[in-house]
């Protein structure tokens, strides 16, 4: 049974419609990439999934429960965590406090402060610093750690590599298998198609608010993907 089912999801910003009838499913333990150019609707999809945008309840079903109409805090308690685009750390909180805020969701599990520090030792060194004093890559580590601290069953990562140096992107991608383990599912939103496809078992490509292509990375040719991506 699919862990997450999205059925005919529409999303609007006032008069502007950002998503048109998206259908999508993710099985337990699966890593799915969402690719697409700027404005294709990837972030809107993440906002809908995480509860920052409200939808009709039955449009999003997670582990058999309709959650499309829930608030973000209620969604987080059901085991969906978002690493938001642009990291969005809390500037008034220290590195460690940013991580600890993830425990506010109240889900016990394998992820603890000690394990996050084991995964990203640099954060342990900087744990008492202001989160604003970190580099972009370190901030992304905190954002990922903060989400993991809620012990989610489904991890959403919006624009994992955006604005980061290549060497940092490489090390974060190397850490991904450790991050997504123990049966956790993940959705990775990326503009870097090659990177995204390298870690995922399936992908969906969005274009102008619709799914333009989906499948397994090996099944589709480069031409097919780039046509679905750019719409040419």
């Amino acid at each position: 049974m699919a862990d997450l089912m999205i059925k005919a999801l529409d999303a609007h910003y006032g008069d502007f419609q950002a998503l048109y009838g998206i259908d999508l499913s993710i099985a337990a333990g699966e890593v799915v990439a969402i690719i697409g150019s700027n404005g294709a609707g990837k972030s809107t999809l993440m906002r809908s999934l995480s509860g920052l945008m409200r939808n009709a309840p039955e449009q999003i079903v997670f582990k058999g429960e309709s959650i499309g109409g829930l608030r973000a805090d209620e969604v987080s308690k059901r085991g969906i965590a978002l690493v938001p685009e642009g990291r969005q750390l809390f500037p008034s909180l220290s590195v460690e406090e940013n991580l600890l805020i993830g425990t506010q969701v109240g889900r016990e599990g394998a992820w603890t402060l000690a394990r996050i520090y084991e995964l990203f030792p640099i954060l342990h060194e900087r744990r008492n610093q202001a989160s604003t004093s970190l580099s972009g890559g370190q901030q992304q580590m905190v954002a990922i750690g903060r989400a993991l601290m809620s012990n989610p069953d489904l991890l959403l990562i919006d624009e994992l590599s955006l604005g980061l140096a290549p060497v940092i992107i490489k090390s974060i991608y190397e850490a991904l298998p450790d991050i997504i383990s123990n049966g956790m599912s993940a959705v990775i939103v990326e503009q870097d198609i090659t990177k995204a496809l390298s870690v995922s078992s399936r992908f969906y490509c969005l274009q102008e608010g619709r799914v333009s292509l989906d499948g397994k990375p090996g099944e589709r040719s480069r031409e097919e993907i780039s046509r679905a991506y750019f719409g040419v």
Binding site: R71, A81, I101, G102, R146, S150
Partner: peptide, 8 residues
Amino acid sequence: IAQLMGLN
């Protein structure tokens, strides 16, 4: 973002 962290 606070709402995402389970804070209502």
